[in-house]
Design a binder for these strands. Structure first.
Lengths: 285, 285
DNA sequence: CGAATAGTGTCTATCAGACAATATAAT
DNA sequence: ATTATATTGTCTGATAGACACTATTCG
């Protein structure tokens, strides 16, 4: 490579004996503008860079079935062809990973969510976590208000798996498909395997919710705009792995009263009418 | 599929009319081994990928000065030449971002830390956060046991800045250099500016420590292997922005007793001998 | 002894959790 | 009225925080 031949048209610029001298000149003596122009032309493809993906743990809750669910897709391409995996995709230029998460969620599930609904979990970068090569993933957690279309998009099979906690195990079930993983270790223990390190990601998401529920009950966005105390107890019970009756109504309400706003009464239903609540929005993270 | 037009180098493989057909074949019909071989050869350079860096918020605490400090380097290259910035660098192939963090910390400060000392903070990916182009950074938080060499390495000036909290402001000071930032908004308000979005990263680190201190007092690693209750109070006071005397000794000890192990007594010093403690290690995250 | 430092004990308002009582509506 | 569901109220043990007291060492 000829190092003294960069931008002949610009007489301001000196010539260089070697690459190191040129680098030093642009990094320390040239103007920032000249540096950036030089960098884009010479440095941008010099080093190997990883691909970056997002992987999204999308939870929803179905009131009728009283089931917590997580969205998985069956991969129809290599690698991990026919394995279940989290939805996600490659981050594109000129977008943040937050935006990637929202874009992928919208295209894969048809549900529009905002940055208020998502939360960055962790960035996974273990070498060889993806057999295709150097691929880093930024994982996200999102709570979908109501169960949307379950039909797959992008020519993939996309299904909601019910999530049942038993001790430290999560049972992800949809019909004949069953995946069992330990969310303390992040490993699948029986049944089908998950693609890549997605068992770790799901575990991290579940633990995050569990640890923050009472302090930051964002998980109640699973119930949409408004909900009753009992509905909130049912959602918490899914993460605690217990029947919702074991969560005392009175104590639960006391614990969360600071995070909730009362909206009115639910007009229909058996028994005393429930009051309906919504999450306070003014929380500054 | 047409099998009558074999490739010379591998008779097993078919030829394709167009790129799309080829992609479809490898993704869905070929073996995974063949797919991966094809992917590496054809797909690896097809899409633009970002550079990925790590940025490390390294805190230390000096007992003699009773000062919390954060390590900043003065950049001697574009972009942000002469601005103060967090130490960090590009993630290399075949290493995780955790390993990058440890490697960069070792080379920039001379201090060897283990994965026990670091914690991933957040991945920042706002477009144009770096004028050089598409650069994503994974930020880390680390607690250095004792103040190491302050001399810069890598031909950069590296200095420990004392960190003083006043209300929502952090004052980062080293001699004539002073940077003031609001850790609630993540913005510098006066004095010198920080490079890139590093004010946001430092703010995130400070808030993370503040929110988790009592629940997960990993911050006490600032005090090395062992410490007295009063030393621990002094560290907490730095993050709370108050004199350590306002933290009641008795109540503080009660709050942290579950996280500490008593080692013995400190033999020297004025007044009643202090007991020395260390952090319990058995915490599973 | 007195000053300085640090560990220990006590009191109280508050709160989480267990449990009881009341309110409403469908059958 | 009975039953199911939900809300409201009460009691108690535990705890955080304020404060007081005791223990040790140095000058």
């Amino acid at each position: 490579m000829i190092w003294n031949n960069f931008r002949k048209d610009d007489a301001r610029l000196p010539t260089f004996i070697n690459e190191r001298e040129e680098k030093h000149y642009y990094e320390t003596e040239a103007t920032e503008k000249d540096y950036l122009a030089w960098y884009r032309q010479h440095n941008s493809k010099k080093y190997r860079t990883p691909s970056v993906t997002v992987d999204n743990v999308l939870f929803c809750y179905n009131r009728e079935q009283d089931q917590l669910k997580v969205l998985l897709i069956r991969r129809n391409t290599h690698p991990f062809r026919n394995s279940w995996a989290l939805p996600g995709g490659f981050v594109q230029p000129e977008e943040s990973t937050d935006e990637s998460c929202l874009r992928e969620t919208a295209t894969e599930t048809g549900v529009s969510i905002t940055s208020q609904h998502i939360e960055q979990l962790h960035t996974f970068s273990t070498p060889n976590r993806d057999p295709r090569g150097w691929i880093i993933t930024v994982s996200y957690l999102a709570f979908i208000g109501e169960e949307p279309l379950t039909a797959g998009l992008d020519a993939k099979e996309a299904l909601w798996f019910s999530v049942v906690r038993k001790d430290d195990m999560l049972h992800l079930v949809n019909g004949p498909n069953e995946i069992i993983l330990n969310f303390q270790t992040g490993k699948t223990t029986a049944g089908e395997q998950l693609a890549f390190d997605h068992a770790k990601i799901i575990s991290k998401a579940f633990l995050r919710v569990l640890n923050k529920m009472y302090h930051d009950p964002k998980v109640l966005r699973l119930l949409g705009q408004s909900f009753t105390i009992t509905e909130a107890r049912k959602v918490f019970a899914k993460f605690l792995g217990c029947p919702h009756q074991t969560i005392d109504h009175s104590n639960f309400k006391k614990a969360l009263r600071a995070e909730l706003v009362e909206l009115g009464e639910k007009p229909v239903g058996i028994g005393r009418p429930s009051k309906i609540f919504t999450l306070k929005e003014n929380k500054k993270k």
